[in-house]
Amino acid sequence: MRLCRITIIRTQLGNNYKARVTIMQIDYKFNDKAIQDSIKRLQQLGADMTPITRGIAAVLASESEAAFQKEADPTTGRKWQPLTPKYAAKLAAKGLTGKMLNISKQLMQLSSISV
């Protein structure tokens, strides 16, 4: 079982202080034993692992990007909770009416990088 963690931290500046605030943390676990076993067999055969690892990374990055586009859990397909009306109105007042968690694309990029 493998644990992956994505943590988004923002630094806030106050009058006389600097604080790091965790905005969001996502933990997910998955069983990769079959994949690891297959990779070990290929390594024992002396295979070039570059195409395989790049292919795996591409699939995982694609799944992550699809989750953001669908605004849903990539495993269950369950939609994310909607924004509260108050928060949605606050974003709309700033002209931010697009998909959730895509204001700066920062979270999506971090998700793709961690794969």
Rank of each mutant, 00 (worst) to 15 (best):
L45Q: 15
K86G: 08
V59Y: 01
G55A: 11
G77L: 03
T50F: 08
I26E: 09
S38T: 15
L60I: 11
K29F: 11
I23S: 12
D32F: 04
L83P: 07
Q69K: 12
Y28E: 13
T84Q: 09
F30A: 12
Y17G: 01
K33Y: 08
A67S: 02
E71P: 01
Q81H: 14
R20C: 10
I23K: 05
G55F: 06
N31H: 08
S64W: 03
D73F: 04
D27E: 14
S62T: 11
S62Y: 05
T50C: 09
T50Y: 11
D37Q: 05
K29V: 10
A19K: 12
D73M: 09
Q25T: 13
D32K: 02
D32N: 10
K18N: 13
P51S: 06
F68L: 07
D73N: 13
S64P: 00
M49H: 01
F30I: 12
N15P: 01
G77M: 01
T84D: 03
N31K: 07
V21R: 01
T84N: 05
D73G: 00
Y28D: 10
T76E: 01
P82G: 09
K79Q: 14
P51A: 08
L60D: 02
S64D: 04
K29A: 13
A19L: 14
Q43C: 09
A61K: 08
I56H: 00
N31L: 03
E63P: 05
F30L: 09
E71F: 02
Y87W: 14
W80T: 00
G77F: 09
S62N: 14
Q69I: 01
A72W: 03
R20Y: 06
Y87Q: 06
K79Y: 04
M49F: 05
V21N: 11
A57F: 06
A66W: 06
D73Y: 10
P85N: 04
S38L: 15
V21F: 08
Y17W: 13
A61E: 07
F68W: 00
A58L: 14
P85M: 03
T53S: 05
K79H: 13
S38V: 12
S64Q: 04
P51W: 00
A61V: 04
S38F: 12
Q25F: 11
V21T: 12
S64E: 01
A57L: 05
D27F: 01
T76N: 05
G55H: 09
P51M: 04
E65C: 08
A66N: 09
E63F: 06
I26D: 10
T53H: 10
T76K: 05
F30K: 07
K79M: 12
T50P: 03
Q81M: 15
T75E: 12
Q69V: 05
I26K: 09
P74K: 06
D37E: 11
G55S: 06
D37A: 06
A67M: 01
Q69S: 15
E71C: 08
E63C: 13
I35M: 14
